[in-house]
Structures are given as C-alpha cells and as structure tokens.
Amino acid sequence: MDEVSLSPDETLRLIEEQRKAVRHDLIPNPLFTYVPWGAAWFVGYLAFFLAYGVDSAGISWQLALAILMGGQILAGSAMVYGTTRSSLRVKGHTSQRGAMYGIAWFVGMAVMGWVCSTFVIHLDQNLVGLLFSTCSLMIAAVLYMAGGAIWLDWTMFFVGTWMAVVVGIAAAVGQPYAYLLFAILVGGAFMGVGVIRRHRR
C-alpha cells in the first residue's frame, strides 16, 4: 500500500503543496467576504450621499436605505456561502471561536440598534441616518480589529483600524460628505483588499 519512496526535495515539495491546499481550503475566498461588503457599502452609502447631498439625483433616503440594506443582505449571504464552503469539516477551537465571533456580531449590532433607536426621537431627523451609520460601522471596525487579533490576521486588524479612523473623521465632517467617505474610503478599501488578497492566495 505504501507508495514509491520520494526523494527529500520531492518530499518537501509535497509537504508545501499539501499545506497550500489545506490553507486554500480553510481560508475563505476574499471574493466572497471582503468584496461583497465593500460593494454593498460603496453603492449604499453613495446612494445616501446622493439622497442628502445632490437634490437633482432624485433619490429619497428611503430608497438609499433600501439599497444599503439590500446590499448588506446580499453581502451577508455571500459571506456565509464563502465561509461554509470549505470541504474540510473541522471541529474544535476554530468552530468555537467562529461561533463566539458570530454571536458577538449579532449582539453588538442588535444592542447598537436598540440604543440608537432610543435616541432617535431627540434628534434632528437629518442626523438619524448618520448616527446609525457611524455606530454600526464603528462596531464593525472594532469586530474586525478583534477578528484580526483572534486569527492573527494583520490585514483584518488594519482594515478595522482604518474603518474606525474613517468613522471618526466622517462624524466630524457630518453629512452628506460623511456618506461619500464611507462609500469611497470604507467600501472602496474593502473591495481593494478583497481583490489584492484574492491574488495573493
């Protein structure tokens, strides 16, 4: 049953190829993770910018919200597909980390939604969208940084840091340009990172 013995350099090559195959299988394809979120934020926040900043665009904030939410649902679906298509079924610490991380996203976003909605009645209607956008992107930023720390992924960590910085600047800039910053600097960055990581896989 044992195959023909390989030379030492053939064996090292086999080890490297097998390691690469396992990594390729276990690490989600960034075209299903970073790029869809980047595209959803780019299109969604561009729609918000047009709704609040360019009267002639004829886009209502309701339409912009529908575009952003629809894009995020599609991005979430793509991410679930991308992270569950690995052929190796692994159990143990990785799946526990993944489950806790997923719950952290859910709890973070749900509580953020609840907290922000309690402030909405005291706010100028024009600021509601900006409050929800900055808070949800800030939670995403922190969770990306945390994800980078959990999986020792510096790109993920820096993407989170970058998002946090953009959120800080956008809050100071105010609308409508805050939305343009989100579209270009967050959405664009995610799409760029996704494409670069895809090529380096």
Binding site: Q18, V22, V90, G92, H93, T94
Partner: peptide, 12 residues
C-alpha cells in the same frame, strides 16, 4: 501535513 496545518485544538 493536513492535520498539522489545522490550528491546535482542531480535529477533522
């Protein structure tokens, strides 16, 4: 090699 490429504490 496949098993060693998994993070510690994981099984396949």
């Amino acid at each position: 090699v496949t098993l060693s490429a998994l993070p510690g504490g994981d099984r396949v």
